[in-house]
Design a protein around this nucleic acid. Structure first.
Lengths: 132, 132
DNA sequence: CCGTATCCCATACGATACTG
DNA sequence: CAGTATCGTATGGGATACGG
């Protein structure tokens, strides 16, 4: 995430060369961001509940990603000073704007996961044939 | 990309526990994939042209990502055995289905990049205040 | 023109253990 | 409950040089 390079969107923003849109996309494009955002879209969610919903994520990675998303203004973190502590995460309106797009992405992945698996097999088979 | 964990979509596919949708999303979610796909959506593109359009990408990373996307069945690679060699990359129909969603994502990033920058500043300022 | 090969660093990530 | 700390590995990615 160094500031020294721009990646995606100079394609789209040719009038503004230093536009940081690429960085923004890089964030959403992390391994866990989409899962967390989708899991938090239905309403306030507690830390442990997120840990359950985003399957496979470690406690550490969940924390790091939550902090990052909060810093970007995509999640709001609310601490209730009770014992035991209670912390809730909520999508901001900005993040909610993204929700439909994210779901479309997930839906596309679902529809094509079999195609992709077949494509990979075919590709690998072709490679193996070239070696021989 | 180990096969041992599932991440995103158990949220969505609770009837199919071993669904590899998460992996698929992980691919699209890489640092360069979106940029490459968008750049290739307008028609057949040559290697060098991609190198120019996806600003900041190294030759190595472009090659690796092109191979990955080809293997997944998102790009088709056509070699013309001329001298000098000519290679064209084209989005498959499956990838084209994704194009609108990708553009929506890019558009969202453009609309909110300033908001995000401000959110980050505010967050950092709050952190600094907590230390003091 | 379209790559590959090598080296090396930064960071993402997981596992485990500890705490207010 | 909701984290933090520390450690170790794996992968991503840049720089450079070379090749068909």
């Amino acid at each position: 995430m160094s500031r020294s390079h721009i990646s995606v969107t100079d394609l789209v923003t040719e009038e503004n060369p230093a536009c940081p849109v690429a960085e923004v996309l890089d964030r959403v494009a992390g391994k866990w961001a989409i899962g967390i955002l989708v899991a938090a879209a239905k309403g306030p969610v507690r830390f442990t509940e997120l840990e359950r919903r985003v399957e496979g994520i470690s406690r550490r990675m969940l924390t790091l990603n939550l902090r990052k998303l909060e810093r970007e203004g995509l999640l709001e973190r609310t601490v209730y000073p009770t014992v035991p502590p209670k912390v809730e995460y909520t999508c901001t309106p900005m993040a909610m704007e993204l929700h439909e797009t994210l779901m479309t992405l997930v839906d596309w992945a679902k529809r094509h996961s079999a195609d992709i698996a077949r494509a990979q097999e075919a590709y690998d088979a072709a490679q193996a044939a070239d070696v021989a």
